[in-house]
Design a protein around this nucleic acid. Structure first.
Length: 193
DNA sequence: CTACCGATCGCCT
DNA sequence: GGCGATCGGTAGC
């Protein structure tokens, strides 16, 4: 795991672009993590986004500087990690390949299956020990490390998961055929995509 | 394999 | 007071 950290300028762009390019990049927290295989994009024009109705206490980090974390609690139980892009926009990190520190991840998750360890935003945060303690924290320094990398296969766009609004927006990006994603592609990739 | 359900709580209406 | 960018267990096909 070497190379420079992704700069803030990488993030200060439309979330869908950043989400697409983040697939293949290597994310670790205190050295634990691996290559990102699945992301989702959210922006303020999107009814599924936490920022759709403007700034609130919870989403404050999403209106903060690009290249910082936005961590929120989901369903009162789980933490979910986002990477802040343009104001009010962010990329949800949904899955990664548990390449670095798999034993620690397995211990934190109480489970052994490498294909389930980080397959889903809540599972990933549990495995990487991400909580609201990281909300608003910059991504270019400890405990985070985020470096560029090539995806292990073709990146395809698909509908996002678990939404009731904005369901048609194809802003989920994943490595086609990867066994580490939370769910396989629902809608086949369009030719040329 | 898919489907449903309960857990649990901060946020917003 | 209702609801959700989820997960894991259980039931059923």
């Amino acid at each position: 795991m070497t190379g420079p950290a992704l700069p803030a300028a990488f993030f200060a762009r439309p979330a869908a672009l950043v989400a697409r390019e983040l697939v293949g990049c290597v994310l670790t927290v205190d050295g634990v993590g691996g290559p990102i295989v699945e992301t989702e994009a959210y922006d303020p024009t999107d009814p599924a986004s936490h920022t759709f109705n403007g700034p609130t206490r919870r989403n404050a980090s999403m209106f903060g500087p690009a290249g910082h974390a936005y961590v929120y609690r989901s369903y009162g139980l789980h933490w979910c990690l986002n990477l802040v892009c343009e104001p009010g926009s962010a990329v949800l990190v949904r899955a990664l390949e548990p390449r670095h520190g798999p034993d620690l991840m397995a211990a934190r998750r109480g489970l052994d299956d490498p294909f389930r360890l980080c397959a889903g935003p809540g599972r990933l945060c549990r495995a990487l020990a991400v909580t609201d303690a990281q909300d608003g924290v910059p991504l270019d320094r400890a405990p985070f490390r985020l470096t560029s990398g090539a995806p292990d296969g073709a990146v395809v766009a698909d509908r996002r998961i678990g939404l009731t609004r904005g369901v048609e927006t194809p802003w989920r990006f994943l490595v086609a055929g990867s066994p580490y994603v939370s769910r396989p592609v629902r809608r086949p990739p369009r030719r040329g995509a």
